[in-house]
Design a protein around this nucleic acid. Structure first.
Length: 967
RNA sequence: GCGGGGGUCGCCAAGCCUGGUCAAAGGCGCAAGGCUUAGGACCUUGUCCCGUAGGGGUUCGUGGGUUCAAAUCCCACCCCCCGCACCA
């Protein structure tokens, strides 16, 4: 442990001093530009974040070793409101937050006061995150670091928005948001108690008439207006008569307030209890039917208008309430109603839906055993009925002109028509209310009238986005369909808000560009920011003309230089650097960003840059779980990266977050995985140290290679090939598996086999270890640099070329010989296990020559298709075989199925290898087999007349499968 | 609901596109042995069931189908996870 820490620091310093990760344009080398979504500094990063960043870093390091001039930059996204909200809570001494800061985030107590300033909080976590990135060994070019509140960056974003507006992609309109009336702010998830996202629903208010008054019943199912039997009011709630936009409405007191936030003019005239209207009549505007106003306690005056239309046929609440009322008719007298009136009300069936009766609401209420209108099970009942009716329901003939339509269609049409006829209006309401702001106030819906949007709904723009996507490589490819879907689904996106950190909207500075909108093309800014910083270019010099020139090649450098006071060489340098590194070669993030950021990135690039500069690839990955559980503060299982590094060290963490799952899957982190990784690295270190200490002594490279040596080299080529292919496809799990586990197993087999041989060809071992170390370098760079140095590497492993497989070292014969031994050992062990004997002597009988002849012939023939008869006929042309025709026929019968089932690939391989001298192979391995089985080994050829074969096993020998007799 | 992903031998997880080498990689866990004063670490072996000869049986969410052959292809169904926005 000590050891890993020491070398981590050592190599981080050396990399830094040698500036090997600082990438400048170099026309002699191909470039590769990788970016990861920059972090939002409102908390330290944890092991989960490490997955995305490590993946990008590993990729960067791999590409560097493949000879690319790789740029991996990093910045910090200060834009937005969460930091503001947190700083405020801290200032108010919110104990929960303070506990989190101290216990989970490990913020020193004395620092807390400082962090009540939002900017200071961002800076604090910024440094914290950055330090973690250094300590885990990311190969970042830190000269290009910036934050999104840097004035120069603000200018860049202003330029971007000017461009978007010029192209007509900015629109303006009204937009509902969750709102805290006390704080006077929009509320997002992080502003609410319990982090609830306010869900906004669009209610239809159907205007029932009562004398000269309107009763606007709020519903999410306007199509059921044809099934209304009565109106519900809560007799105990307070209602008001009010003038709403020149109409006279009766609504709950609460809703009168809310409607004001939805840009309606509301003048309250008088207030009264709901019971005053009970027993009166109202008229359904859709059917002109007269119905009664009845009492119901389930009606919540805080929800929408507090006026509800009753559809007992299709709404479980209404059905239950109606049943309640029918059974308590005595209570009705105070409203001047009679039992007969209520009892004569029947549910009206207007929708037919398979699997349900005429009255689906009744079915479900009865099935669920619901007795009271206050039963919480009614929520589920409502959902069930709604789901089935919406998807499978059809309007019946009594639904007027909507008869025959599906419920889904009718719902929209009825709503539109009623609104057009002035018989309905709409109102937004929170569907998951009550949602409480952190200040304790219940949130409502407010409509922003002059909201600015980016119009992702623009069809031409969508076409461009599709075009860009089509040409991009998407990892994992399975998610391409999701991008397609998102591009189609996106519409106008509110792009500015009134509070938070960020860039002001240049033409309307009351607004601040929100965080998903100021982070779509910033990768371009990385390519020039080092010039901005080095030359201390001021924001007011970074005019739109400068950006036009640098990014779009518009205008003349001389003229712009003159106007802006920026040196012409600097301007040209920026332009060159942008053109060198752009387009972006690979964009990385967790895949939760597909529905927003990543797709926005595609859109914005196509809007602003010419096609050849559009991004080329997106890589997304799943989350990290902690020992199978989702990471969350409430589980207390979040390991901040800095803490993780202290406990498990950098390289093991890097490996752990990448080794347990491929991109699409969530990766599971656990201390035991980290430990396995560390043990692996330490074992490798020991082996390398041993090997290279002894190899400095004289070693004759002249020693001829044995089969096992050739086998090792051959296997190595295969592993290099596999690892390289995996890396190219970002299958890092597979790569790690190959490099660290499969290669290692072969290495162990090699060592074990070698132990029984005399010749110690150490250069084979060192060649293998060198390749292994280099391939492991992107994943475990600190350990590998150290190993590389131990192995006599003169350069940085991080910059050394990635190994290439050498076809000349592939030796399929050696591989076949070796697998013969492995299989033989397996078979022998299996027999020992089944017979439970302790073997003294083990006899092996290698297959007869003629069997090989038959076997090879069968293989060749089977490349087409063989039947036994034709094969035998063919074989018997050989006079030698003809002489033993019977044996040939029996043997052929034994192998024919096996050969027919063999994949072509394997057949071709065996044909290429040709017959193997098994006796020789076995003899060469005798010592090894003896030590493995711990018995005397005796080897015969099948046809050896002298052989000892009491149980007559020898004739069972097949090519690659010697017969066995144990005693 | 819509869109996406997934369900594999105790747990995690490859394989599925391109059917046969698949009782199915690898890791963890567990067991035995080696090493060690001991523990740890490390190494070996085993880990679905049966088996005194390298074999047999039953498995890859469920039920059908295609095929000489299905974890892999087709159909239907069940279950789990993620996203559905103005929020980073």
């Amino acid at each position: 442990m000590e050891f890993l820490k020491r070398i981590e620091e050592k190599w981080q310093k050396r990399w830094e001093n040698a500036r090997i990760f600082e990438a400048n344009p170099d026309p002699s080398k191909p470039k590769f530009f990788i970016t990861v979504a920059y972090p939002y500094p409102n908390s330290p990063q944890h092991i989960g974040h490490a997955r995305t960043y490590t993946l990008a870093d590993v990729y960067a390091r791999y590409m560097r070793m493949q000879g690319y001039n790789v740029l991996l930059p990093m910045a910090f996204h200060y834009t937005g409101t969460p930091v503001l909200a947190m700083a405020k809570r801290l200032a108010e001494n919110d104990q929960d937050l303070i506990d989190d800061f101290i216990n989970v985030y490990k913020v020193p107590k004395e620092k807390l006061k400082d962090l009540t300033d939002p900017l200071k909080m961002a800076r604090y976590f910024h440094e914290e995150i950055k330090e973690g990135m250094r300590r885990i060994g990311y190969s970042i070019d830190w000269r290009r670091e910036f934050t999104t509140v840097d004035p120069q960056y603000n200018r860049f974003i202003e330029w971007q928005f000017h461009k978007l507006r010029e192209k007509g992609f900015i629109t303006r309109g009204s937009h509902p948001v969750g709102w805290c009336p006390r704080c006077g702010n929009p509320v997002g998830q992080h502003d609410t108690q319990g982090d609830v996202e306010p869900e906004i629903g669009d209610f239809t208010l159907i205007k029932f008439r009562h004398e000269e008054w309107i009763l606007p019943t709020a519903t999410l199912r306007p199509e059921t207006v044809f099934g209304v039997t009565n109106i519900w009011l809560n007799p105990k709630a307070t209602y008001v008569k009010a003038v709403v936009d020149r109409e006279k409405w009766i609504i709950s007191q609460e809703s009168a307030e809310k409607l004001k936030y939805q840009n309606r003019k509301v003048t309250v005239l008088e207030s009264f209890k709901g019971k005053e209207l009970i027993g009166k009549k109202a008229e359904n505007p859709a059917t002109n039917r007269e119905i009664y106003i009845l009492p119901a306690e389930f009606v919540d005056p805080k929800n929408a208008t507090g006026v509800v239309m009753s559809v007992p046929g299709h709404a479980p609440y209404d059905y239950a309430a109606l049943e309640n009322i029918k059974s308590e008719t005595s209570k009705l007298t105070e409203y001047g109603l009679t039992a007969n009136i209520v009892k004569s009300i029947r549910a009206i069936s207007i929708i037919e839906v398979p699997g349900y009766s005429e009255v689906p609401a009744a079915d479900v209420v009865k099935r669920m055993g619901i007795k009271e209108q206050t039963d919480p099970k009614l929520e589920d009942a409502t959902k069930e009925v709604y789901r089935h009716e919406f998807h499978n329901g059809k309007m019946k003939s009594n639904a007027g002109k909507y008869a025959g339509l599906s419920v889904a269609e009718a719902k929209e049409k009825v709503k539109q028509d009623l609104i057009a006829e002035g018989k309905a209006a709409t109102m937004y309401e929170l569907l998951n209310r009550p949602v409480k702001c952190r200040c304790g106030t219940e949130c409502i819906v407010k409509i922003f009238e002059d909201q600015w949007f980016i119009d992702y709904g623009n069809p031409e723009w969508k076409t461009l986005a599709h075009k860009c996507l089509e040409k991009m490589r998407i990892f994992p490819e399975e998610l391409r369909a999701e991008y397609e879907y998102v591009i189609e689904w996106l519409h106008e996106k509110a792009c500015a808000r009134k509070s938070g950190l960020g860039t002001k909207l240049p033409w309307d500075p009351e607004w601040i560009i929100e965080s998903l909108s100021d982070s779509t093309i910033y990768m371009a800014y990385y390519t020039i920011v080092r010039h901005v910083k080095e030359h201390k270019i001021k924001q007011n010099h970074l005019t739109d003309e400068v950006f036009d020139y640098v990014f779009l090649g518009i205008g003349k450098a001389e003229e712009i230089a003159e106007k802006t006071n920026i040196d012409i060489a600097v301007l040209e340098g920026m332009r060159k650097e942008f053109l060198y590194f752009y387009p972006l070669d690979s964009r990385h993030s967790a895949h939760e960003l597909i529905p927003n950021h990543l797709t926005f990135m595609i859109f914005n690039h196509t809007a602003i840059f010419p096609e050849k500069l559009w991004p080329r690839q997106i890589v997304t990955n799943g989350h990290v779980t902690m020992q199978g559980a989702k990471m969350s503060k409430s589980f207390g299982n979040i390991i901040p990266l800095r803490e993780g590094l202290a406990t498990f060290d950098a390289d093991p963490i890097r490996l752990s977050v990448l080794a347990t799952a491929e991109l699409l899957q969530d990766a599971d982190f656990s201390p035991s995985v980290a430990k396995v990784m560390r043990d692996k690295l330490e074992r490798l270190y020991r082996l390398v140290t041993q090997t290279f200490q002894s190899s400095t002594e004289k070693e004759s490279k002249e020693e001829p290679l044995t089969t096992i040596d050739r086998w090792m080299l051959s296997r190595l080529q295969d592993h290099i090939k596999k690892a390289t292919e995996a890396m190219e496809k970002l299958e890092v799990r597979k790569a790690i598996q190959t490099i660290l586990f499969e290669l290692d197993q072969d290495l162990q087999w090699y060592q074990k086999r070698k132990a029984s041989e005399k010749a110690k060809t150490l250069h084979i071992l060192s060649e293998t270890l060198k390749a292994q170390t280099l391939m492991l370098t992107p994943f475990a760079p600190h350990t590998c640099e150290e190993l590389w140095e131990t192995m006599g590497g003169k350069d940085f492993a991080s910059l050394h070329p990635w190994p290439k497989p050498d076809g000349k070292k592939v030796d399929i014969k050696a591989e076949e010989s070796e697998s013969l031994i492995m299989n033989l050992l397996d078979d022998t062990r299996n027999i020992i296990k089944a017979t439970k004997m302790a073997p003294k002597k083990v006899f092996y009988y290698a297959a007869a020559q003629w069997k090989w002849k038959v076997y090879m012939k069968a293989l060749e023939k089977s490349l087409e298709k063989v039947e036994q008869t034709s094969l035998i006929r063919e074989l018997l042309k050989d006079p030698y075989l003809k002489a033993i025709a019977k044996e040939v026929a029996v043997f052929t019968g034994k192998i024919i199925d096996e050969i027919n089932q063999m994949p072509q690939e394997r057949k071709q391989k065996l044909i290429a290898v040709g017959p193997i001298n098994e006796t020789q192979v076995l003899k060469d391995t005798e010592r090894f087999l003896k030590s493995e089985i711990n018995a005397e080994i005796i080897i015969y050829e099948e046809e050896n007349k002298e052989r000892y074969d009491p149980k007559n096993r020898a004739h069972l020998a097949k090519p690659l499968r010697p017969a066995i007799y144990i005693e």
